[in-house]
Amino acid sequence: MLRTGYSLFIRISSFALACILGAGALSGCEKDDICVDGDTPLLIIKFLDDENPDNAKNVNQLRVLGLGKDEAVDTFLDRSTLDSIAIPLQPGETQTTFILIQDSEDEEEMEIGNPDTVRFDYATREVFISRACGFVAQYENLESELQQGSENWIRNIEVENTSVQNLDSTHVSIFH
């Protein structure tokens, strides 16, 4: 009987120890975090009237393509008439070039409209947000360059904020 009691004690003790260790292991885990603030910011561009710089001015049938890309940027409705847009920069690069097409439309699968090419140069900085979100890219030292052409619809570009860290303000003003 002593031996049976001892065997039962060992089983109960082993079970209790396993429960304590299991509870300790589970209590070290946290609930899954939800990432709320974990998106890499987009570049905010505002279109302004070249003749009256305090007034916003729509761009008709605007299409934005990344240089060498076949698809339009998908952060706004393609071929929309807008006075501002938000577009993505390439986080692993030091520059991103876009073709901004005014009055864009397809004619027999050929793009027609007035394209202007704009390059943005920047430094990328990786910022840790949280365990749930991980790292996001932020951009510093933003500069722009308009490729000059004979029929440019863009007259001037001004960088308003050289740091792209959020979506709270305009980063670039384009006058047309």
Rank of each mutant, 00 (worst) to 15 (best):
M1I: 11
R3K: 13
R3C: 07
R3S: 13
R3D: 13
R3G: 05
Y6C: 11
S7D: 15
F9M: 10
I10N: 06
R11E: 12
I12D: 08
A18C: 10
C19I: 13
C19Y: 03
G22H: 03
A23R: 09
G24F: 09
G24H: 12
L26F: 14
S27H: 11
S27N: 13
C29K: 14
C29Y: 15
E30M: 10
D32W: 09
D32E: 13
D32P: 07
D33H: 07
D33Q: 15
I34P: 06
C35D: 05
V36P: 07
D37H: 08
G38E: 02
D39E: 13
L42I: 03
L42D: 06
L43A: 04
I44W: 11
I45V: 07
K46F: 05
L48S: 14
D49N: 15
D50G: 06
D50R: 14
N55P: 04
A56T: 12
K57H: 06
N58F: 08
N58A: 10
V59T: 06
Q61H: 09
R63Q: 09
V64T: 02
G66K: 15
K69A: 13
D70S: 15
A72M: 11
V73E: 01
V73H: 05
D74I: 08
L77T: 15
L77W: 10
D78L: 01
R79H: 07
T81N: 07
L82N: 11
L82I: 14
D83W: 12
D83V: 04
I85E: 00
A86D: 07
P88F: 00
P88H: 02
Q90C: 06
P91K: 09
Q95P: 06
T97C: 01
I99L: 14
I99R: 04
L100E: 02
L100R: 00
L100T: 02
Q102T: 08
Q102Y: 08
D103C: 00
S104G: 11
S104P: 05
E105M: 10
E105F: 13
E105N: 11
D106G: 08
E107N: 12
E109V: 14
E109T: 08
E111Q: 12
E111T: 10
P115D: 02
P115V: 01
T117W: 02
I129D: 04
S130I: 01
S130K: 02
C133E: 03
C133S: 02
F135H: 09
V136M: 01
V136N: 00
A137R: 02
Q138E: 10
E140I: 01
E140L: 13
N141C: 00
L142T: 05
E143Y: 07
S144V: 00
L146V: 04
Q147V: 09
Q147S: 05
Q147F: 06
G149V: 00
N152W: 04
N152P: 03
W153M: 04
W153Q: 04
R155A: 14
N156H: 13
E158M: 05
E160M: 12
S163I: 11
V164E: 03
Q165S: 12
Q165C: 09
Q165E: 15
T170H: 01
S173V: 00
S173R: 08
H176I: 07
